[in-house]
Nucleic acid binder design. Structure first.
Lengths: 151, 151
DNA sequence: CCTTGATCTCAATTTAGGTTGAGACTGCAA
DNA sequence: TTGCAGTCTCAACCTAAATTGAGATCAAGG
């Protein structure tokens, strides 16, 4: 009498999901730590992942490529419905939100390039007058690294 | 008999150059450590900067905003002539090089956006087929952080 | 049953780009 | 010549995003 309740084939070990996503095992554990993903545990305390988690992890990879921090990604993932496996429509909504960010970054870089053109023309690179060094528009990466700590 | 050899007014202390560039004193010392700038020293071992170093530091700030790492910035600065104060023309050459990088990044992001549009259309976010997740074109930021260590 | 590979947790280390603090010395002005 | 702000060096610490290693435990095949 085979048990119909358990379908272990639907659950993936951390090694399996790592292979499927291309992520390292340690990175996946790290993401769990950061609450980006929540696998269930076996009686022996090992992680088991849903198939839909592959898509979730893929999203993390893609969003990182688009320049989002893990914190921002967590915010996006929080928009997914709790309790049920996300549908294609759920993912579409998030993708659209990311498209907006992408558009902004492209616009910022384009503005910067145009200003740089002006600077090349005038030979200008002095902070006092340079149009690039204008606090009014923050480029995506807002200034030197640890400076963020001040904020 | 005033000494005509010394023109201390042409040399700036670290505090002065920090005020003029908006950088912190500690950041400037850090850049010296990274060989991005080489102030001379007084008999009492204090740093003294040339006026042209203001422009050099400004360049560092601008290049960072454009997404270059300090290492890449060092490479660009290495193109400046040794021994003489850089001219406007010297800076123009470097600005032009950076403009190229900017163009590349804009092109990359634009390609990515177009692909994302395709993904939104098909609801696709699976690594196996997603056009965004294509190792063939590396977006400027090449994947998750510490992964760089491997290379 | 036993071995072996996979996992587990937890702490330390990495890179980039700095900041912060301690304790000592400099330099300029009154 | 003293007073004090500015500097000096050096070491420790910070965030992000992970990796690496130690030592223990799990799970599945033979």
């Amino acid at each position: 009498m085979p048990s119909p309740r358990l379908k272990p084939s639907d659950l993936l070990t951390i090694g399996e999901i790592a292979r499927r996503t291309g992520l390292s095992v340690s990175a996946i554990r790290f993401y769990e730590d950061k609450r980006l993903i929540e696998p269930v545990r076996t009686g022996g305390n090992q992680r088991r992942f849903l198939r839909s988690d592959i898509r979730r992890l893929s999203f993390i990879l893609i969003a990182q490529r688009l320049g989002l921090t893990l914190g921002e990604i967590e915010d996006e993932l929080a928009k997914l419905p709790q309790g049920r496996t996300p549908t294609a429509g759920d993912w579409e909504a998030i993708s659209a939100a990311i498209r907006l960010r992408l558009d902004e970054r492209i616009a910022e870089l384009t503005r910067t390039r145009d200003r740089l053109d002006g600077c090349i023309g005038c030979g200008c690179l002095s902070l006092a007058h340079c149009a690039i060094w204008n606090p009014q528009d923050q480029l995506g990466q807002q200034g030197p690294g640890a400076r963020k700590l001040i904020a």
